[in-house]
């Protein structure tokens, strides 16, 4: 198959996806639509965490912290001034009068998360392995504590509720397509190979002149951007945001998707995110009828253990389908 045909096929796939979104919007009930929204957001989260954890071998548990930052920033920018006056009377004037539309507010949320990633990355990325995991967990807790205590900005533990239900399947689909594009374009580039080299053997990579520290910060920042955008989508899907919305349990869920799919495989984390979140949703009625709440989490934790024992590199390892490699490799004359 020639490159032109391949590109055409890729465009057709994206268009077909859009067609399915249109069909779902027209014919699915609110319940099923919201499930699809959550599945899409989970896919964005897993794919973006894979850029951070999978490409450069960071083990970050801080993804929900970036979601929280993005979620609050988006909500504060979108919330109408009247409601802000009621919730948060002490806001500075420029923020109190801001009433952005959804798209720029989502982008601002993503950029705020990037800023946080750069600030936290500089000291924390000196650490490795378990130490890094614990440090990013600490970062998540710090963000939660800040949100609880910065009353004037976040309304503390009450959170912000009654947000406009702006997130629909179109938004989720668009963000997912952009996330996948960025992840694949990075993976099949010199920059992406440099990131993977840092993961495989940092010392050898540095001896080849690959700036390992910069590669790690970049991977953390790219992951944080999409986590921030997902936070904004999430907040305007469930129309509320509280300090507890983005928890360590959520970090565990996203990490499990990346590990089961295969650290470093974009395709793997996409499929794992879709599979696991659909499975969790499907199990909810069972949980209710048996009154066994938390069953889905237990099954997922067991799945993670089985995967680590039988297939420690995940379902896909670091591999991607050949066709995608040919589509994204940018070295054709």
């Amino acid at each position: 198959m020639s490159r032109t045909t391949l590109r055409l096929a890729a465009l057709c796939t994206v268009a077909a996806g859009a067609g399915l979104v249109a069909l779902a919007q027209a014919f699915c009930g609110d319940y099923y639509l919201s499930i699809l929204d959550f599945v899409g957001i989970a896919a964005v989260l897993a794919v973006s965490l894979n850029v951070t954890n999978g490409f450069t071998g960071l083990f970050s548990l801080g993804h929900p912290a970036f979601m929280a930052i993005g979620g609050y920033v988006t909500a504060l920018l979108v919330l109408p001034p009247g409601r802000k006056e009621m919730f948060l009377p002490d806001l500075p004037a420029w923020l109190a009068s801001a009433e952005w539309s959804f798209a720029p507010a989502l982008a601002a949320g993503g950029l705020a998360a990037v800023l946080a990633a750069c600030l936290v990355g500089l000291p924390v990325l000196r650490l490795k392995g378990h130490y890094l995991a614990v440090a990013t967990m600490g970062f998540l807790i710090i963000v939660q504590v800040l949100i609880v205590n910065l009353d004037w900005l976040t309304r503390g533990p009450l959170g912000l509720n009654g947000l406009a239900p702006l997130t629909d399947l179109w938004w989720v689909y668009a963000v997912l397509v952009v996330t996948l594009y960025v992840a694949y374009a990075l993976k099949f580039s010199s920059l992406g190979r440099a990131m993977l080299a840092v993961r495989e053997d940092e010392l050898a990579a540095r001896c080849l002149g690959i700036p390992a520290a910069r590669a790690r910060i970049l991977a953390l920042a790219v992951g944080a951007f999409f986590a921030g955008v997902s936070g904004g989508l999430w907040a305007h899907l469930i129309t509320a945001i509280t300090p507890g919305s983005f928890s360590l349990l959520m970090a565990f869920t996203i990490v499990a998707m990346v590990v089961i799919g295969g650290s470093g495989s974009v395709t793997g984390s996409l499929l794992a995110a879709v599979g696991i979140s659909l499975f969790t949703e499907a199990l909810k009625p069972v949980e209710e009828s048996l009154e066994l709440y938390g069953l889905a989490e237990i099954v997922m934790a067991l799945g993670l253990i089985v995967c680590l024992v039988l297939r420690p590199r995940g379902l896909f390892g670091s591999e991607e389908p050949r066709l995608l490699a040919r589509l994204f490799e940018n070295s054709a004359p």
């Binding site: 580039s189 010199s190 440099a194 993977l196 002149g209 690959i210 590199r313 670091s318």
Partner: peptide
């Protein structure tokens, strides 16, 4: 000390990054 999970070609391509590689924006 190779990059064991990467292909032989990608091991060598990664080594070209310092001199020939590009940054984030040109890549994306």
């Amino acid at each position: 000390r190779l990059f064991p999970a990467l292909s032989v070609l990608d091991n060598v391509r990664a080594a070209c990054h310092r001199r020939l590689g590009r940054g984030l924006w040109p890549t994306l």
